[in-house]
Simulated scan of single mutants.
Amino acid sequence: MKFTPTKIPGAYLIEIEPITDERGFFARSFCTDEFQQQGLNSNFVQCNVSFTTHKGTIRGMHYQIAPDTETKLVRCTKGAIYDVILDLRASTPTFKQRIATELTADNHQMFYIPPGCAHGLQTLVDDTEVFYQMAGVYNADAARGVRWNDPAFGIEMPLAVNVINQRDRDYPDFTQ
């Protein structure tokens, strides 16, 4: 795997390294040893799948507060998403900054999202599936979110927003 650090400390874009032959290809999408060599948490204890019917759907921006912060490894297994990481750690030089990339079933890329960062996405095509590996169990009492369109962050999505649930739409303005 190829680990590319992003401008957000602790966040990585991860690419598989396919070995091809007449059958297609084989590649690792996760290896505890390789993650540990990069200094990354590899203790994934929960896996989640989201399936979204309509392109233009927003999911997020979600995170969990301490002591239940989460590390996430996100990969699009069907379709395509515009994936966003937002740094909510006041102690970092990238506080309130974001990065985004397209994750698709075809490019096989993944985002590694460190604790203290919010995560959200917009589907770029209909019938999109996303696979999440989590280094923490979901705790509803620790779950939080911010609005993707909060002016404090300047996040722009590539498509018109067609679907967003009420919770994600109604998060209050961000305050430090």
Results as ranks from 00 to 15, higher is better:
Ala143Met: 07
Tyr132Pro: 12
Ile155Arg: 05
Val161Arg: 00
Ala160Glu: 13
Met157Phe: 03
Ala135Gln: 13
Arg144Pro: 06
Gly120Trp: 10
Gln133Asp: 06
Asn162Tyr: 03
Asp141Leu: 08
Ala140Phe: 14
Ala152Phe: 08
Asp168Gln: 08
Asp126Val: 10
Asp141Lys: 12
Val146Arg: 00
Leu159Ser: 04
Gln166Pro: 03
Ile164Gly: 00
Val125Asn: 01
Ala160Asn: 10
Asp168Val: 07
Glu156Pro: 00
Tyr138His: 15
Val130Ala: 01
Tyr132His: 12
Phe153Tyr: 05
Arg144Val: 02
Gly154Leu: 09
Gly136Phe: 03
Gly136Ser: 13
Gly136Trp: 04
Val125Cys: 07
Thr123Trp: 03
Asn165Asp: 12
Leu124Ser: 06
Asp168Ile: 03
Val161Asn: 00
Ala135Val: 15
Glu129Leu: 04
Val146Tyr: 00
Ile164Glu: 03
Val161Ala: 00
Ala160Gln: 07
Ala140Lys: 15
Val163Cys: 02
Gly120Asp: 04
Pro151Leu: 02
Thr128Val: 14
Leu159Lys: 10
Asp150Lys: 04
Gly154Asn: 08
Tyr138Thr: 12
Asn139Cys: 15
Ala118Cys: 08
Asn165Gln: 09
Ala152Leu: 09
Thr128Asn: 04
Thr123Asn: 01
Gln166Lys: 13
Asn162Val: 14
Asn149Arg: 09
Val137Trp: 03
Gly145Pro: 08
Val125Pro: 01
Arg167Phe: 08
Glu129Tyr: 05
Arg147Gly: 12
Asn162Thr: 15
Asp168Tyr: 10
Val163Pro: 00
Asp168Cys: 04
Val146Gly: 00
Ala142Asp: 08
Thr123Phe: 02
Asp141Thr: 09
Leu159Ile: 14
Asp127Asn: 14
Asn139Gln: 15
Trp148Val: 12
Asp141Tyr: 06
Val137Thr: 14
Gln166Ala: 11
Gly136Lys: 06
Arg167Val: 08
Asn165Trp: 11
Val163Asp: 07
Gly154Ser: 04
Ala142Cys: 14
Asn165Tyr: 11
Pro158Glu: 04
Asn139Met: 15
Arg144Gln: 11
Glu129Trp: 04
Ala142Leu: 11
Glu156His: 09
Tyr132Cys: 13
Ala160Gly: 04
Ala118Gly: 05
Ala142Thr: 14
Pro158Thr: 13
Phe131Thr: 14
Val146Trp: 00
Gly120His: 06
Trp148Thr: 02
Val125Gln: 05
Val163Met: 04
Gly120Phe: 12
Leu121Asn: 02
Ala152Lys: 10
Glu156Gly: 02
Arg144Ile: 03
His119Lys: 08
Gly136His: 09
Asp150Leu: 06
Val130Met: 01
